[in-house]
Design a protein around this nucleic acid. Sequence first.
DNA 1: ACATAAACGAGACGGTACGTCTCGTCTTTTG
DNA 2: CAAAAGACGAGACGTACCGTCTCGTTTATGT
Lengths: 197, 197, 197, 197
Amino acid sequence: MDPGRPRGRQRSPESHRAILAATRAVLDEVGYFRLTVEGVAARAGVGKTTVYRWWPSKSALVLEAIGADLTKPPPPSGDLRADLHAVMTTMLEDLRGPPAATLLALGGEMLHETPADAGPVALFQADRGAVEDILEDAARRGDLPPDVDTDLLLDIYTGTLLYRLLCRRPTEGVIEKLVGLLVEGEIPRSGPETGPA
Amino acid sequence: MDPGRPRGRQRSPESHRAILAATRAVLDEVGYFRLTVEGVAARAGVGKTTVYRWWPSKSALVLEAIGADLTKPPPPSGDLRADLHAVMTTMLEDLRGPPAATLLALGGEMLHETPADAGPVALFQADRGAVEDILEDAARRGDLPPDVDTDLLLDIYTGTLLYRLLCRRPTEGVIEKLVGLLVEGEIPRSGPETGPA
Amino acid sequence: MDPGRPRGRQRSPESHRAILAATRAVLDEVGYFRLTVEGVAARAGVGKTTVYRWWPSKSALVLEAIGADLTKPPPPSGDLRADLHAVMTTMLEDLRGPPAATLLALGGEMLHETPADAGPVALFQADRGAVEDILEDAARRGDLPPDVDTDLLLDIYTGTLLYRLLCRRPTEGVIEKLVGLLVEGEIPRSGPETGPA
Amino acid sequence: MDPGRPRGRQRSPESHRAILAATRAVLDEVGYFRLTVEGVAARAGVGKTTVYRWWPSKSALVLEAIGADLTKPPPPSGDLRADLHAVMTTMLEDLRGPPAATLLALGGEMLHETPADAGPVALFQADRGAVEDILEDAARRGDLPPDVDTDLLLDIYTGTLLYRLLCRRPTEGVIEKLVGLLVEGEIPRSGPETGPA
DNA sequence: ACATAAACGAGACGGTACGTCTCGTCTTTTG
DNA sequence: CAAAAGACGAGACGTACCGTCTCGTTTATGT
């Protein structure tokens, strides 16, 4: 009966989800470096084999686990300053805490092992395309120079925020200053706020 | 008449140097994650004990090893744009290649293990103080606003360059654009050069 | 319908056998004190983990390895002198050579570590019960006093033979003299043989 | 003039004594196998070098340390039974406790390493010559057969007592039974005492 | 008195093996 | 026949001692 369905036991979505959840839990508790596949499997109530059947390595597993966590897409909008602000705020919220360190570790590991792998990099900027659209729209409207280097703009705010997180420096007011700098060329000044006069 | 000197056999500078050199060599060849203390010791022709006697962990060892490599201080000067350019150039040269990935990995590991450790962070910016001086001098001369947020300026160029390296994106022209942005508020435009006319 | 059997992969009998064989080989070559678990594992083509999984310590491993070698049970019989002679001959053959020294070392080590462990002791006399039966039968038949101290008789010949081996003194004729002493009370005299006319 | 005396600083008897005392203390506490030269040196308040300067190995050190402890010579006498009794009693007292296990370990180790070394063996029987004299005197007086195998007699009681100690079996009454057996050919019987009627 | 020189304490050195841990694979039994 | 359980070969971990080797210091001897 029902000859189309392959026979035997099917891939269990529960196991899959349990493994990802366990990965996130272990990441939060002990961090990327002390995470072990055995620990994750035990926590998920699952055999090690099952983990290795679906993910080739620890990094792939972690990548998917935190990737699932980061899928907070920023809302679309029309105002350049507001949109950039929203994008950065989302990013800060996503990366504040363990994920930032995990991503750094992942990045370092993958850079060594697979020179051209864009995996971890993609995570830092799941919505890079969307932000590029925002910037190009702004350039078309004249809010930015027509030949603006969107790539560099993206890297400036991404790199800066990531670096502040990595160094555990405060991030209050940073978004506003970055928006001012990138949109209007306002050199950042001390003080928590640099809003327009 | 020097009661401070300890009595026994003294620490061997050759071993010390051999270990750091071996660490750098292994880092270059296999990267931070596949570096093993045993491998370093064997390469240095040294007992594992000797490594562990002076460095408590793999990360401490690597930190010192690449730290010794990064001690390229930028030259002092008086022209803001030229000075910033020199600082960034030095940084790019120092970090291009394996060290960048190693630092990322180190950063990720240390963030997890010792929440407040500024060790790896300090490496990204061995001369942070010197650059702050440059910026403050410029502010006094009027080349920058008097209340310029030097901290953020530093993080912007450091984070951006580091991120470009991490993502393996090209860095040509980036320094010039960053200088223009941070000193004059010039929004970066496409094209290899955006120097003033 | 056999709920007792564990689920996972089963203990590999080949590894088990290879480890014991390697242990015996290493013992013969370098002796108990220079035997290392690493060496045994390498020789057996086995991971160190597998050795430690089944034997808690070097001494336990060696104990089982030579125990497997000593399982030469003497044949049962009816004549007291002949039976004792056979028992002692078996023992001498078993212990001549490396095993004696190994057992001594094991005994010394275990005495220190586990005060009441009868392990190595049992090895000197794998068939102590059988010999006790022989002596008790003889007592019942009147060939020995009815209240003969079988325990001490056993210890006398075991201790004496072991000690001769340990001191590397010759053992020719000793068995005959011991039999004569223990069965008939004949004080041992010089000369290779003291058998009855 | 006295060209024989060396010039420099002389061997320090305090260190020497402190090392032997520390060796005995460590032996009592942790046993032969867990004794380390470093531990002994630290306990003695002495550099490792000083230990190695005077003793080539752990076993040589231990040998001398317990040898110094065993120098309880049995008293001479004229009555065969009484003399044998005294000899065995002394031996039991000397070996009861840690020394027995240490000697076993030493014996095992030395047998493997230096096939013909009589060192540890000599310890079991510091006074073997004296006992041989006793037995030969008895043979001359007619208390033993004229061609008595003194060597075997010595080994019987030495081996038996040592083995009882090694197996931690009780030794009460054993000396009396051994004396009866070896002097009069009395087969040992159960019960703590088998004294003459 | 002073140089000479041996023995000293301290402890760093190159090593070896320890027993533990985790890796990623392989094998067996259960559902 | 996939999942679980878990044994397996491999090999790095960080520790403990080994026996050797400098170091300065101390103590005795012989000028």
